[in-house]
């Protein structure tokens, strides 16, 4: 992981570990799915806020992944129930 300091604007990399960019909370190795270490919340899209997301259709979810340390929203996903999380990982470097 030499020279690599973040996975995204919200998830940084420190000594090979994914960490919350806001508070530094450890989210596991950067070469593994960090979402496994985040708080995950799934809500119907219609309840995400505002009228524009209320499509009148059920079964569409908005997933939130929060930092367990500071509650920063690290990522979102549109999903259907049971679909796996999207994993973004960095390759290990020599």
């Amino acid at each position: 992981m030499s020279g690599q300091d973040r996975i995204s604007a919200s998830v940084a990399v420190k000594e090979g570990q994914a960490v919350c960019a806001a508070c530094g909370h450890d989210l596991g190795p950067a070469t593994k799915p960090w979402k496994d270490h985040a708080h995950r919340r799934e809500i119907p899209l219609a309840l995400a806020g505002g009228q524009a997301y209320d499509t009148g259709h059920e079964g569409v979810l908005l997933r939130h992944f929060y930092c367990p340390g500071c509650a920063a929203l690290l990522d979102t996903e549109t999903a259907m129930a049971g679909d796996p999380a999207l994993d973004d990982i960095l390759a290990a470097r020599g």
Binding site: A9, A52, Y53, L62, L74, E77, T78
Partner: peptide, 20 residues
């Protein structure tokens, strides 16, 4: 695309609202 949002967000950003 009137059911699922398709403009995905990044780093915690929400998707754009779907078409209607």
């Amino acid at each position: 695309g009137s059911r699922h949002p398709m403009s995905e967000g990044l780093a915690g950003g929400y998707p754009g609202a779907p078409n209607s």
